[in-house]
Design a protein around this nucleic acid. Structure first.
Length: 160
DNA sequence: GCCAACGTTGGC
DNA sequence: GCCAACGTTGGC
């Protein structure tokens, strides 16, 4: 059981989109970074919890919580030439990009990046590291407990 | 729209 | 295997 943070541009897929999806589940398409892919393909386990983070928008921050809901499988968007996520170097018999389904757990108040930065307890958070661009990253259990507990008051998500 | 920081590519 | 050039991310 591990905790994660997953970034999504709300224009593409927001926490509301996830809540409104069939079965409240969406495939996490579009990851084209090897480190993020490896986390998703190799390290995640079904049932892991993740902060759903809105990036590249007016108010970046944590907007909700989701969970890992499937085993890894190839990201279909890499094969579609008309798709912005198309990767001409990926072959069907040896897919380069893998994803998981994620399931909606809850929406939270928007916990802004500025607010996260202001917490000394989170100084070591990978999200806040200088120059960080990773779209999927682990969250330590201490960081998870602090954010869900002290900042969000969501005791049901602590120590799960 | 700017730009710093980063990851990837490709020539050598 | 180095590293310069390039493209992308993402906050502001």
């Amino acid at each position: 059981m591990q905790y994660w943070l997953m970034k999504s541009e709300p224009d593409e897929a927001s926490i509301d989109d996830l809540a409104a999806a069939p079965g409240q589940t969406l495939p996490w398409v579009g990851v084209r970074n090897y480190q993020a892919r490896n986390f998703m393909r190799d390290t995640m386990q079904i049932g892991d919890l993740a902060f759903f983070y809105h990036s590249s928008c007016a108010q970046p921050g944590i907007a909700g919580i989701c969970s890992v809901a499937s085993e890894p499988y190839p990201d279909e968007t890499q094969f579609a030439a008309v798709n912005p996520y198309f990767d001409p170097k990926s072959a069907r018999d040896n897919p380069r990009w893998w994803l998981r389904d994620v399931a909606f757990e809850c929406k939270t108040r928007l916990l802004t990046l500025a607010e996260l930065r202001a917490c000394p307890e989170l100084a070591g958070m990978r999200l806040l590291a200088r120059g960080n661009r990773l779209s999927i990253m682990p969250v330590s259990s201490g960081e998870w407990q602090f954010i869900t507990g002290a900042l969000l008051g969501l005791d049901q998500f602590k120590s799960k």
